[in-house]
Structure formats: structure tokens, C-alpha cells
Design a protein around this nucleic acid. Sequence first.
RNA 1: UGGGGCGUCGCCAAGCGGUAAGGCACGGGUCUUUGGAACCCGCACUCGGAGGUUCGAAUCCUCCCGCCCCAGCCA
Length: 566
Amino acid sequence: MPTTEYTPPPNFIRTIVADDIKANKNGGKVLTRFPPEPNGYLHIGHAKSICLNFGIAAEFGGLCNFRFDDTNPGKEEIEYVESIMADVRWLGFDWGDRLFYASDYFERLYEFAVELIRSGRAYVCSLTADEIREYRGTLTQPGKDSPYRNRPVEENVDLFARMRAGEFADGTHVLRAKIDMASPNLNLRDPVIYRIRHVTHHRTGDDWCIYPMYDFAHGLSDSIEGITHSICTLEYEDHRPLYDWFLDVLDVPCHPQQIEFARLNLSHTVMSKRKLLQLVREGHVAGWDDPRMPTLAGIRRRGYTPESIRNFCEMIGVGKRDSVVDVGLLEYCIREDLNRHAPRVMAVLNPLKVVVDNYPEGQTEELDAINNPEDAGMGTRKVPFSREIYIEREDFMEDPPKKFYRLAPGREVRLRYAYFVKCVDVVKDEKGNVVELHCTYDPTTRGGGSPDGRSVKATLHWVSAPHAVRAEVRLYDHLFTKANPNDESGGLDFKACLNPRSLEVLGSCYVEPGLAGAGPGSRYQFERQGYFCVDPDSSDGKLVFNRTVTLRDTWAKIMKSGQAGK
RNA sequence: UGGGGCGUCGCCAAGCGGUAAGGCACGGGUCUUUGGAACCCGCACUCGGAGGUUCGAAUCCUCCCGCCCCAGCCA
């Protein structure tokens, strides 16, 4: 169930699929696929594709295959296939028994290649990589035929068999489709479809030393699986004629329709594997699952819920224009989810001690607190109160500006669920820093009510000093300050746009005692501080909270716009 | 400059010849045991530009402008 009343907008892919079903194309069936290459971690951009493929299938009573496009060993690792499966599962999708690998089809693909050769549509080319590039021509000039283009069929068959048998070194020969060296679409200028790679494949081991290229393997794999709609990103638009060419020319089970959509770009975020790898390698982040990373592993660790990601993918829509979605929308989605489902607790991140002078020394009492004011079903809990408490340092100002409603000398505020307190004294150190506050409380306001009807302008969160549990808190912010770090043309200049405050570790924070045994991954809303989750990886027994996202902060806005003056 | 795509509010995005949905953001308000949340109101006489067709165009035609992708034995 989506977490909002929001109705997803129609999109062109839904329309195409709906029309196909109406026309009874493919017998009215829908079979999509999510085909990652296991050469890295999945990121939020992949989530869009996953949600789209599994979503469209589910929506129209079809299914979605999960296939690893593992045709380039050397870049691919078993570690990645495992992380990818875990991420898709975490996102909430179930591929049932439809887990496939392009490498499962290597034999079949080889046969297709031989069929191509026998029909005179493919040839073994012995030009070097550099020569092939030269022969390909340029964007404006046509290419020229390879001298090997008209090799006799039998020679091609023989050579290709010997390529497979391992008789040749890497780079000495390739198999090319014989299409059109003058095509304005460079992808059609006799594309390479098989190359020699004496590399151990993570699944097929050393069974093969020739591997099919994407263009050849992908469409045929789709066809073998009976895919109806092959949804991919915009950069493959130029490849569609080639995708169709193989399926037209070969004797295949079916001819899926390739549909392209715009990949996700997020402001303040880099999404390319190359740049993400650079962030990891140069040590700007702790690893692929650093909570600041846009990887699903990082986002999960940061405390995002799969529901919020799915909802986000629904809200951003699907189109063909290059766009950059504001991270603010992602943050909206996680706030909305957590606001409903995460219990609220009080935690003081930057403590200032307050002594309640007229509260009996040594006395403690348990007060009732509500876990979620908007969901009575989430119940209540007890929080201890005593003579010494901590409040947020920023909740007190000795000389408050006009619109500051919180605590100040002589002013009375409410301690949430506890009492009204009035500040009667301010203690400072030699340097003039406020180190402690003295207040008096009104016993008749127990629980936070005011029997005499008097009101206060602010309610503060707090924790009892002797009872509070110490915790480490990591405040995460955007990794990048630049509006869109993807703007640069050459290499990304991290120095220019990395946010130096993307990670702030607080070591002396205090949380309610009830959080002492909070399990890894549990999520909370810290009153007025944001949404936090217990780091799933806090292994050394320390209580560590990751800030998932901040709350909307109106006061900060007022301060920023300078309206808080006296 | 060859080919393939795309241009609707600050950011996404519906619309497909009948007179500009929705969400985020933003502004204002009500309420509030946190200045959060919730709720209410406001927010494109205009659809990259210029012509044309039509009773009528964001939707059709023409030209122009801008942006993205393609010259891996990557996917």
C-alpha cells in the first residue's frame, strides 16, 4: 500500500502496455525484466527501473524476470550478484523462480551466432581494435568495409569455432554482424558481437573464452525468455534498430518491444558508478554502504524504508526528458513514511544541564509519554523525571530575539509530558559561556497540562540527567553542496562541491533510557531533531544513531531570512 | 556539421483539437503538549520561439532556437 492518497500519474509506458493488452498483443500477456550487470552496487537510479519493471508487470497481471547481464567477465563479481539480489529483495520485490543469467544462454547464443554466419550476416574480422575504430568512420563520415568482410562462410564458421576453442589470443579476432558500414547510426556499422577474452567467468568458469556483446546477447536473451516489453534507458534508443535487426534476421521465439525511458538524476547526488567508485577509492566515504551514498545499501543503512523509495519512484513519474529530481522530494517521501510509523522519543543532542531547584533532591517519577500523537494505536511509554535534566542548548537564549519562544531568563516553558518550568538563574564559566540553568517548576502542571489555564509559547524536549543513556549520533547531510554535481563535463571535481559537513559525529548525546536496548535498524523520530535509526552495523555494542533526515525546520528558515531580529 | 531523442510553473509531471490535472518547493492561515504533524487557501490568461491551418491549438503543419545521447573488442 502506498503511504499517501496520491494517485500515480499515467505514463507512456503504462499506456503502451495497456494498449498492447487491449489489442491482445502477445496473447494479452506481460513479461518484463530487470537486467543488471553484476559489476557494482545498485543505487537509487536502479530503484526506478526495478519499480518500473516489477510494477508494470504486477499492474497488468504479468511477471518480471530477474536476469544478470553477465556477458563481460573481469568486470563482474559474485559479490555484486549477491548484493544486487539482497537489494532487490530489500526493496520489496519477489522474482519467484525467475532468476536468470545471460550466461545461462551462452551455448544458445553461440548457435545464434553460427546461424548468423551461415546466412552470410556475420564474419570474423581480424582487424585490431584501433583499425576497427578507424574503419568505423566518424559521426559525419561513413565508415569503410573491413578487408575481412567478405570472408567465405565456411572460413568464418571455422574461425569462429577456433575462437571458441581457444586457439587465438585476446584481441586477435572478433565476430561482427555484417550490416552497413555507411549507416548514419554508428551502431549499425558492422558491430562487434563476440570478442575473445581469456578470463574466468564468475559462473561459467573457464568454459568459454569468447563472450557475446550486449547488443547481441540482450535482445536474444529477452526473446529466449519470452519477454514482451524490454524497458531500458534512453541511451539505448540508438541501439533499438540493432536490437530489432537480430530478432528479425534470426529464427527466434519472439520479438520483444524495446521501450526507453529517462534515467533518474537527483540533485546533490552523483549516480554514475565511476564517480561512486571514485568516492569510495579516494576515501571521501567509508564504503559503498556509507549512509551518505545513494546506493541502496547506503540508503538502507541511513534508515530509509523500502516503502518510501517505492513511493518516491511512483511520484517522480516516467518520461523521456532528461531531468534532475530535487532530493527534497526523496526526503519528503521518507519523512512522510516515518512520521506515521516511527515512534517519537526525546533525545538531547547538544545538552545544557537544568537544575529544578524546587524539585526534591533524590526524587524520581515516571511520566506518561505518547509514542505517536497521530496514532493512538502506537501506545504510550514511561519516561523518568528528576531534579536534573538536559535540554537542547539551542532551546535557551540569554538574550532572545523577537520571535524566539523558547526558554530565556524569567520565561516559563513546558517540558513535554512533564511540567512548566521557569528559568530563574543562569550559571556561566569564566569565559562567560552558559553552563547550567536553574529553574523552578509548577507541581500543578504535572503531565504538561495547566489547570489554571495559563499558556506557554513553547514546549521543550528533555531527558533526565541521571537516567539518560549516552549515545553516539551521526548527523548526515548531502554529500554535495553544488546544486547539481552532475553538471561538470570532464572529471568531477569533488573538492569544489563536496559538503565538508556531510558527516558530523556527536559523541555526547543523551536519549531516553527506554532506547538503551533499541535493536539495529529501529527507527525513531527525535522530537524536533529529525528521524533517526540505530545503525544496523554498530557492532561494538555502542549505541549509534544515524540521522535519516531532518524535520522541516521553520525556525531555521525564520533565522535565515533575518526576520528574527529584536 | 550525420543520426537518434527531448523541450508544459523553481523541480518532477498529466494533457494527444474544445479553452492548462496532481505532487514537491514556495507564500498566507487554522489548530497544536515542541516553530513538527494535520487541515484550509494561494501559486502557469499560458505550454522553447515565430509563422500558418481552424469557430477554436500545448495538442495539427512549417521554419527557427535550445538541451541530451552515439565514433568500447562496456552495459
